[in-house]
Amino acid sequence: MTHRTEPGETPQEPAAAAALRRARFGTLPERIRPEDTVETNPATVPDPARDTYNPDEWLIRYCG
């Protein structure tokens, strides 16, 4: 098995290459919770006079 090198990089012995790899990729980044990745903002300011809900309105419209 041969060791591949990046352009401009000098070949290193396997133990040194493994140590560099562990130093660079040895730990995962800190976990981010899904709740921290989403931001919610209302599209408009709620208008209580306009947004009132009457659960019996359909009875008046369709059965009356």
Rank of each mutant, 00 (worst) to 15 (best):
A23S: 05
T27S: 10
A18I: 07
A16I: 04
P11K: 01
L59S: 06
A19W: 01
A15I: 02
E30Q: 05
A19V: 02
A17V: 01
T40W: 09
V38S: 07
P34M: 04
A23D: 03
Q12S: 04
D47Y: 06
V38T: 10
M1C: 08
A15C: 01
D47L: 13
L28T: 05
M1G: 10
A43C: 09
E9T: 00
Q12G: 00
P34D: 08
T44M: 06
P11R: 01
E30M: 00
P14Y: 02
P29M: 01
I60Y: 13
Y62Q: 14
R61D: 11
I60A: 15
L28F: 08
Y53L: 15
A19F: 02
L20N: 15
E9Q: 07
A23H: 03
V38W: 04
L28N: 06
A15Y: 00
P42L: 15
G64A: 07
N41S: 14
R24A: 14
P7N: 00
T52A: 13
R50G: 13
M1E: 07
T37F: 04
E13N: 06
R33T: 10
E35V: 09
R22P: 01
T2I: 13
G8N: 00
T44V: 09
G8S: 01
A43I: 13
A23E: 06
E39P: 01
N41C: 11
E57L: 14
E6C: 03
N54D: 14
R24C: 03
P11Q: 02
V38Y: 07
N41V: 15
A19C: 02
F25R: 05
P48H: 09
N41G: 10
Y53R: 13
T44R: 08
E6Q: 08
R61W: 06
